Structure formats: C-alpha cells, structure tokens
Computed example of a mutant assay.
Amino acid sequence: MLLMLVIAERPVHTQVYESLKDTTAYFKARILDSLTREPVAFAHIINTSRRTATISDTLGYFFIRTSPGDQLQLTAIGFAAGKLSIGYSILRSQLIHDILLRPIIYSIEAVRVNPLGSYEQFRKRFVTLDLPESEYQIHPSVLEKINQGTDTMDMLIVPPMSPVTALYNLLSKEGKSKRKLRKLLEQEAFEKQIDFKYSPDIVSHITGYTGFDLYEFMEFCSFKKDFLLDATYYEITRAILGKQQEFEAIPEK
C-alpha cells in the first residue's frame, strides 16, 4: 500500500516541478556597493541560462526575464563579479531585491611618461621647430649668411628706437646656435659611420677601461677623422693598443 502511494505521488511532483520550471517572469533588483550602499550604474547582468543580458541604470536598477533555476552573472568595473541563482520564491516575490557587489582595487605597474620621447624624436622636433617670425626685417642676403653660421650686421633695417646692440645680440645668438646645431649633426653622422669599428664599447673591450678612465683615454687618443674613416678595424685596434702603452706610461697613471 505504501509502495503504491509513493509511485502515485511521483507524477504529481514531476508535474509541479515542470510547471514551475516553465514559469517566466521579470526579476527586478538594484545593484549596490557593499561598502557604501551607493548604486552601481551600468553594471552588466547576464542570464547565462537564457543567453540574454541587460544593463543597470544610473540608479543601479534593472529587470530581466528569468525562470526558476536560471543563473545570473553580474559584472561592473571596479567590482568583483557576482553570481545569483534564481529560485521560485525570489521570482514569485514582488519586492525589488538589493544585490551587493564588493568593490576591488586594481594594481597596475608604474607608468613613466617622457614628454620629449626618444632622442631621435627630440632631435627631429628641435630641427623642425616652427619659430615665430622675428619683428626685425632682415635682407635676404643676410639670411643666407646666417644659415651658414656667419655673424653679420650687414644691410639690417633697424626699427625706430631699437638699440643696435640688441639686434647684434639677436643675430649673434642665432648664428652661434645654427653653428652648434650643424656641428652636432655632423658629429652624429660621423660617429654613425665609424661606430662599427671605433666606439666606447669597442675601446673598452680592447683596453679594459671603463667609466672615466675610458673617456679620458679616448680623449688622449684624439685620432684624426680621416684615419678613423679610412682605416680598417685591425689598423684601429693596433693604434689603440699603441696609444694605451703611451697612456699607461704617463707617471700619474
């Protein structure tokens, strides 16, 4: 008799479960910060069971269609992800539920910002720097000489009440700056030409010198540019070793 009762009840239980499982309704809730109880805006709510999703509004409220047994996944920037299983009692309730998300702190590595960029970028910006027009009117023939690095006061049209000494200082500084820049670019191009056979790294490898001793020795060598350009790596190495003997023979060395 008892066995027959159990068998008779199974279809009823199954029928009730299936009816609950097929029930769908809108689940309404609000997402809050677990520490401050402030609303979490624009959180993502995904029903992984139905593959549907929604987003909370600026006050943290949202609603989404669910059924008993559905799984919700909640994510928001600055908060740990949360999960919620929808039960029949929750779905049947007419209340707006509060869901708390725990805030988290992201650890990131330090960022180093260099406004000047690399040396090549800085040099390019310096060379192509767009300077404002000078208030002084200069004859075109004078500009050509300035580009050649020549200090000159020829054929200047001096504005009224402008001191001549101020004009001279302006042109003199401009000419010197252009000469310095030209020498810097020429030296850089020269070093690139000989870098594969004569450089601080190569001299240090040959002599064993480092730091201040290395640069003092290279200044002592003072090889001619023509020699460094025309000589082979072997010839330069022999010259370096010869200079090293002279350098170490100096009494204070």
Rank of each mutant, 00 (worst) to 15 (best):
D151G: 04
S141G: 11
N114I: 09
E133C: 03
S89P: 00
S118P: 02
Q94R: 14
V113G: 00
L59W: 02
T128S: 14
R112A: 09
G149N: 02
T58A: 10
I99S: 06
Q121D: 14
N114S: 12
Q137M: 07
T66R: 02
I146H: 03
D57E: 06
R125A: 12
A81L: 04
G149S: 01
I138N: 03
P68N: 12
P103G: 01
G69R: 11
Y61R: 12
E120I: 09
F42L: 13
R123D: 12
G117M: 04
G69I: 06
L95C: 05
L116Y: 13
I108G: 08
G87E: 07
S93L: 00
F62K: 03
I46T: 12
K145L: 12
I46S: 08
L72A: 05
Y88I: 07
L91E: 00
I104D: 03
Y61K: 11
I55L: 12
S93W: 00
G117S: 10
R125Q: 13
D70P: 01
Y119M: 07
I90P: 00
Y119S: 12
Q73P: 00
F42S: 15
V40Y: 02
K124Y: 04
Q94T: 14
L59G: 14
V40S: 01
P115L: 07
S141E: 15
R112K: 11
L95R: 15
L91R: 01
S107D: 13
R123F: 03
S134W: 08
T75S: 15
Q73S: 13
M155V: 07
P140E: 09
S89T: 08
L59E: 15
L74D: 09
A81P: 12
L91Q: 05
S93M: 00
L84T: 04
S56W: 06
N47I: 02
D154A: 14
F42C: 05
T152V: 03
M153P: 00
K124D: 14
K145P: 01
S56D: 04
I108D: 11
F63S: 15
G82Q: 11
A43W: 03
S93N: 10
K145Q: 15
L72Q: 05
R51E: 13
V142A: 15
M155D: 15
A81F: 02
